[in-house]
Computed example of a mutant assay.
Amino acid sequence: MNDSKHLYEKTLSTQQIFEGKVIKLRVDEVLLPNGKTAKREIVNHQGAVAVMALTDEGKLVAVRQFRKPLERAIVELPAGKLEPGEEPLACAIRELKEETGYEAETFTHLSLFYTSPGFADELLHLFVATGLKKGESQPDEDEFVDVVELTLEEARELHRSGEIGDAKTVVALFAWESREFYGTK
């Protein structure tokens, strides 16, 4: 069913351009299926998690955070990158506590998706956290966030206004709407 060999791009050469704390950037020269060559700029990322934390009152726990590439603050799910060798669940537990102060009784793996496969290999694990207990947040020293609790309608309005617009939070919002529509918890 997934016969895609005719689409394959063979790597002819790779040049490492940049290696930072969060990403690596390389440029590959590839042989295209039609015999021509092309350059592909590729961002390597070790993967990340995001947590759709839902309170017993049916509210989403999110964070408002300034994002330098956008030059503004947006509202998004608590999230963070996986440390080398770290299990996604352990990262989800850590990030929820660090960014919001909340701890959860239950974490359910909801989805796994590539954030932007046209140029990056980042794979994101999306968890739903329930049975929340409020505590004290402990953000990283270079991380400044406001914790917000949103009803589904408030989250929809922030999405319409563009204040929610990152892929992980939009995916979670659609999943939350689907849960509400189908009456599942």
Rank of each mutant, 00 (worst) to 15 (best):
residue 37 T to F: 02
residue 64 R to E: 15
residue 50 A to E: 05
residue 68 K to A: 15
residue 85 G to M: 07
residue 31 L to K: 12
residue 66 F to E: 11
residue 44 N to L: 15
residue 63 V to H: 05
residue 63 V to E: 07
residue 44 N to D: 14
residue 42 I to L: 14
residue 55 T to G: 07
residue 68 K to Y: 06
residue 37 T to A: 00
residue 51 V to E: 11
residue 33 P to G: 06
residue 48 A to K: 03
residue 69 P to W: 05
residue 51 V to I: 14
residue 69 P to R: 03
residue 83 E to T: 01
residue 67 R to G: 04
residue 30 V to I: 15
residue 92 A to T: 01
residue 64 R to V: 08
residue 76 E to I: 05
residue 43 V to M: 14
residue 93 I to M: 13
residue 72 R to W: 02
residue 96 L to Y: 07
residue 87 E to W: 10
residue 62 A to C: 10
residue 51 V to W: 04
residue 57 E to L: 13
residue 36 K to I: 00
residue 78 P to D: 09
residue 68 K to W: 00
residue 44 N to V: 09
residue 104 A to V: 10
residue 103 E to D: 13
residue 30 V to D: 09
residue 103 E to N: 11
residue 33 P to N: 08
residue 105 E to V: 06
residue 102 Y to D: 00
residue 103 E to W: 03
residue 79 A to V: 07
residue 94 R to T: 11
residue 73 A to L: 04
residue 46 Q to T: 11
residue 95 E to F: 02
residue 37 T to S: 07
residue 51 V to Y: 05
residue 69 P to E: 06
residue 75 V to P: 00
residue 31 L to F: 04
residue 32 L to I: 08
residue 101 G to C: 04
residue 88 P to S: 12
residue 46 Q to P: 09
residue 51 V to C: 06
residue 67 R to H: 15
residue 76 E to L: 14
residue 60 L to I: 04
residue 44 N to Q: 14
residue 97 K to Y: 11
residue 85 G to N: 13
residue 57 E to R: 14
residue 51 V to R: 02
residue 40 R to M: 11
residue 30 V to R: 07
residue 71 E to L: 13
residue 47 G to D: 05
residue 48 A to S: 15
residue 49 V to E: 02
residue 54 L to Y: 03
residue 39 K to R: 13
residue 35 G to C: 06
residue 47 G to W: 03
residue 43 V to K: 06
